[in-house]
Amino acid sequence: SEFQINEQVLASWSDSRFYPAKVTAVNKDGTYTVKFYDGVVQTVKHIHVKA
């Protein structure tokens, strides 16, 4: 599913667990740039983002 900029989502971290994050960019290659609550910004594949 498509997510929008500033949408609150759950994004997987390197430990494969999902954490609350905010979408900061929707990228043309189908990835999302997300910002976790601790301030870390990461680009993740769409399969690693869920509502």
Rank of each mutant, 00 (worst) to 15 (best):
A21W: 01
Y19F: 11
V34Q: 00
D15F: 01
F3T: 06
H48Y: 13
A25V: 07
T31V: 02
D15I: 00
A21V: 05
K50A: 08
V34H: 00
A51Q: 11
V41Q: 06
V23G: 01
T43Q: 08
I47V: 10
V34G: 01
N6V: 05
H48E: 10
N6K: 03
W13L: 13
S14N: 15
K50G: 06
V44P: 03
V23P: 01
K50Y: 08
S1Q: 14
V41N: 05
K50D: 09
E2K: 13
W13I: 13
H48W: 10
E2C: 15
H46Y: 09
K35L: 15
A25T: 06
A25W: 05
F18M: 08
A51M: 09
V40W: 10
V26R: 06
V49C: 07
A11T: 03
D29Q: 00
A11R: 00
V41I: 12
E7A: 05
K35S: 10
G30P: 02
A11F: 02
N6A: 07
K35E: 15
A51G: 10
G39V: 04
F18W: 15
A11D: 04
H48L: 11
K45C: 12
Q4I: 07
S12Y: 14
G30F: 04
N27E: 01
K35N: 06
V44R: 04
L10A: 00
S16D: 14
S16V: 07
V44H: 03
Y32K: 05
T43D: 09
F36P: 00
Q4N: 10
I5W: 04
V41H: 06
Y19C: 12
F3C: 08
V44C: 09
V34R: 00
K45T: 13
G39E: 06
R17I: 14
N27Q: 02
V9L: 02
V9R: 02
Q42V: 15
V41R: 00
D15L: 00
N6I: 07
V34P: 02
F3I: 08
N6G: 15
V9P: 02
H48R: 10
K35W: 08
P20D: 03
K45N: 12
A11I: 14
V26Q: 04
T24R: 02
T33E: 13
F3W: 07
V40I: 11
A25K: 10
K45H: 12
T24D: 02
K22H: 10
T43P: 02
A21D: 01
K45P: 13
V41D: 06
F36I: 03
F18Y: 12
V44D: 04
T24H: 03
A51L: 10
V49A: 09
Y37Q: 10
V40P: 08
A11M: 03
A51V: 11
E7N: 05
V41G: 07
W13S: 12
T31F: 05
T24A: 06
F3H: 05
A25Q: 08
I5D: 02
G39K: 04
G30D: 05
S12L: 15
K50R: 12
D15E: 09
V49W: 02
F18A: 02
S16R: 09
Y19I: 08
S14A: 11
S12C: 15
A21M: 03
H48T: 07
T31D: 06
D15T: 01
G30T: 00
K28Q: 12
A21G: 08
V26N: 06
Y19D: 00
V23I: 15
V34C: 02
Q8T: 13
H46A: 15
A25N: 07
D15A: 00
N27F: 08
A51K: 15
F36E: 02
E2S: 11
E2I: 11
H46F: 10
Y19G: 04
T43E: 07
T24C: 13
V44S: 04
Q8D: 14
I5N: 05
Y32V: 12
K28H: 12
V23N: 01
A51E: 08
R17P: 12
V44T: 05
A21H: 02
W13Q: 12
V44Y: 01
V9Q: 01
V49S: 10
A25P: 01
G39Q: 03
A25M: 08
T31Q: 02
R17S: 12
F18D: 04
D29T: 00
L10F: 09
N6E: 07
T24Y: 02
S14I: 14
Q42G: 11
T31E: 04
I47D: 14
K28F: 10
T43K: 10
V40L: 11
I47L: 11
Q4M: 09
I47M: 11
K35F: 07
S14P: 09
V9H: 02
D38M: 06
R17T: 13
V34D: 02
F36S: 01
K50H: 09
E2T: 09
Y32F: 08
H46N: 13
T33G: 05
H48M: 14
V23C: 02
E7L: 07
V44G: 03
P20Y: 06
A21T: 04
W13P: 09
A11C: 11
N27A: 01
A11K: 02
W13A: 13
V34I: 09
E2L: 11
K35V: 14
G30E: 03
Q8M: 14
S14G: 15
H48F: 13
S16F: 05
V9F: 04
V40H: 14
W13Y: 15
V44A: 03
H46D: 13
T33I: 09
N6M: 05
I5T: 05
D29W: 00
S16Y: 05
S1W: 12
N27S: 03
Y37R: 06
